[in-house]
Design a protein around this nucleic acid. Structure first.
Length: 125
DNA sequence: TGCGTGACTGCCT
DNA sequence: CAGGCAGCCACGC
């Protein structure tokens, strides 16, 4: 029979970790896929994109606040709705459809989040 | 059971 | 300085 390993908690699916961090982005601010990935070990920007594509509804996840590193909303069906939601939150776009990072850049996760996840800045590569 | 694919990014020509 | 490419998780057919 299958031997159960000891002292080895089952890993939290990467998508759940992405969603919990996305919840840290406040109204009126935006973060890039890469910014989210930078705080999550073993998660690449691409994977953040994968997770966002599979975002479950009804769980208070502000998916609209994640945009690409160029400061634009990634082109896809639904991008217009994303922009509308952001504008409703006070996020402004210039003529080229770009968000000002200077004004709206997310400042990083809360201390509470870092405590809860045991995030260690020194282990960032 | 395996393969394709989906909200990206930074490095290397 | 623009374009190509590797990275690498879940899930559906």
């Amino acid at each position: 029979m299958m031997i159960k390993t000891v002292g080895n908690d089952k890993p939290i699916p990467y998508q759940s970790r992405v969603y919990e961090l996305v919840r840290e982005v406040p109204k009126g601010f935006v973060a890039s896929y890469g910014m989210i990935a930078a705080f999550l070990p073993n998660v690449s920007p691409r994977m953040v994109g994968y997770a966002m594509a599979a975002t479950p509804q009804g769980q208070n996840i502000p998916w609209q606040r994640i945009i690409n590193s160029a400061g634009k909303i990634s082109d896809r069906p639904g991008s217009a709705r994303q922009r509308a939601k952001l504008e409703a939150e006070g996020v402004s776009f210039n003529k080229a459809g770009t968000v000002s990072w200077t004004k709206h850049r997310w400042q990083g996760p809360s201390d509470d989040w870092m405590q809860k996840t045991g995030f260690d800045p020194l282990e960032m590569k």
